[in-house]
Amino acid sequence: MKLTLKIWRQKGPEAPGKFVSYPVDNVNPEMSMLECLDVLNESLIERGEEPVAFEHDCREGICGSCGFMISGIAHGPQAATTVCQLTMRHFKDGDELVLEPWRSRPFPFVKDLVVDRRAFDRIVQAGGYISVSTGNAPDGNAIPVGKEEADRAMDAAACIGCGACVAACPNGSAALFTGAKIAHLGILPQGQPERDRRAVRMVAQMNAEGFGSCTNIGECTGVCPKEIPLEVIARMNRDYLRGIWKERHQLVTTIAPVTDWDLVTK
């Protein structure tokens, strides 16, 4: 089949950007969206043009590297599917697909379809862990975890950190991402000692990054390739309130967002 890919091209954050339309012939319905971009890029390189920069790595929907808007929908029209696993059979001959990067202020623009998602790492740095140094652990079966609890924790832990939730949210909120980690660790008995502190610090960091507030619209869970349920946000809010109530006298520190890429500071 034949498709037209209308792609956002921009060399860098300071350079002007624009949409460029590329006709792609011989699209095989079995191809993934990214393989379709590969085919386009090969032809661009052969013509001496710069290929479209896009993020990708595992190409099996688990690393969370890939992701862009396809005609206004994060990761495209197929539910629970990242762009690397989205096969072209979901489109019709002659379709025009509009590809744009995630657009959200806390995800600074890098190039073409690539943005900077380091804000997510900093949210995890702010408390998305259980503080247990190597060697401290009791026997694996010493702490029983009921099957239902383990399953619910796993549902939340399945987040791949791709950022689609933020891109889809009209408020640019990272509540689904942050809530997923708070829920994963907060459900498990191992996560209880730091439950309040974790919620308070992670939410504070999310705000410091400039992500918007959640108003329960639910676009996030609709586009989430791992179908993280909206309940994780309710859980985040509850743990946050509980934490604020119990630890309100504590000073909450946040990490300064870094946006440049000159990482080598001497």
């Binding site: 862990y129 259980i130 190597t134 652990a137 009791p138 694996g140 099957k147 383990a150 994963h184």
Partner: peptide
């Protein structure tokens, strides 16, 4: 043991 302590949600029996 280490992974369980970190909160890795391994599959469990009832």
């Amino acid at each position: 043991d280490q992974a369980v302590a970190q909160g890795v949600p391994f599959a469990r029996e009832y």
